[in-house]
């Protein structure tokens, strides 16, 4: 293994270019991960030098798109962390069930596995018809995939296990039809989803929600950016609404923490 070809100072230069020319601000992302992603892209696209890499980024607008797509991490799963979905099912949605209308924001939804999982739980609790799921991400490419609702068939065994562990009682395969190597999820699930790009760094609050999920996104932000995004969520959440984070993320040290109370073991907080 070689030392990273693109060095810290060069990373800063590229991130500044990206901000100046294209308006994407990655300067407050955790450096180690972004450095890994940029170096990965650099070797993937076989650039001979940093200068050439930078030239491409600056002068080739389509390449800037690829750059953004590649430096964000889009890995996701359906019913990832079954215990979390169990808590949604048993401790969160029963509260929301009393509302006439449920608005949910999935921030950093990636390719949509999370949105379809939440939709399935809502269906099973008979809350789906009065729900609306706003699924957003900075990366337009993943949103296009999310809209299709087609995921690799090879994953379904794992997802089905997750689903059952999360308290699902149906046949998981009843939610999709196999199409070659893809599982196409029921169109009706898609009917209550709105997909849109939204950049947590620069875009504003756009609605009031009863539930916001933002999982495995904040681990990529530094503390200042995390604080800013927590404020955005606070503004976008109704009183008594819920905020759900990833297993390794916490609200605990943030300035809005005093407005929230954590549900037992999962990373779910209620605004009080």
């Amino acid at each position: 293994m070689q030392e990273s070809a693109i060095r810290d100072e060069e990373i800063e230069i590229l991130l500044n270019d990206l901000l100046e020319l294209y308006g994407y601000d990655f300067t407050n992302y955790s450096k180690a991960s972004i450095k890994r992603r940029i170096n990965r892209l650099y070797s993937l696209d076989k650039f001979p030098s940093f200068a050439e890499f930078r030239y491409h980024l600056r002068n080739d607008a389509p390449y800037s798109k690829r750059f953004v797509e590649q430096i964000t991490v889009n890995v996701t799963e359906m019913f990832r962390d079954p215990g979390f979905y169990k808590a949604l099912r048993e401790q969160v949605f029963p509260h929301l069930g009393t509302y006439p209308f449920i608005r949910i924001w999935l921030a950093g939804c990636s390719t949509g596995e999370e949105a379809y999982s939440v939709a399935i739980v809502l269906k099973e609790l008979n809350l789906f018809d009065k729900s609306l799921l706003y699924a957003t991400d900075i990366n337009p490419e993943v949103l296009e995939k999310a809209e299709k609702g087609m995921f690799p068939l090879s994953q379904m065994k794992q997802y089905s296990e997750n689903y059952i562990l999360s308290g699902g009682k149906h046949e998981f395969s009843s939610y999709y039809s196999a199409n070659y190597n893809l599982a196409k999820f029921d169109e009706s699930l898609r009917s209550k989803m709105i997909f849109s790009t939204h950049n947590l760094v620069s875009d504003h609050s756009f609605n009031q929600f009863q539930l916001i999920l933002c999982r495995n996104v904040l681990i990529y932000f530094d503390k200042d950016l995390q604080a800013k995004v927590f404020n955005l969520f606070d503004q976008s959440l109704e009183n008594l609404g819920f905020l759900a984070l990833g297993t390794k993320e916490t609200l605990r040290f943030s300035s809005i923490a005093s407005n929230f109370r954590q549900l037992n073991s999962e990373k779910i907080w209620r605004k009080v």
């Binding site: 955790s30 180690a32 991960s33 890994r36 992603r37 991490v73 890995v75 495995n216 681990i219 990529y220 990833g246 390794k248």
Partner: peptide, 9 residues
């Protein structure tokens, strides 16, 4: 010297 977590591939 802080720690970061990453859920990449």
């Amino acid at each position: 010297h802080t720690l970061s977590l990453d859920y990449s591939e």
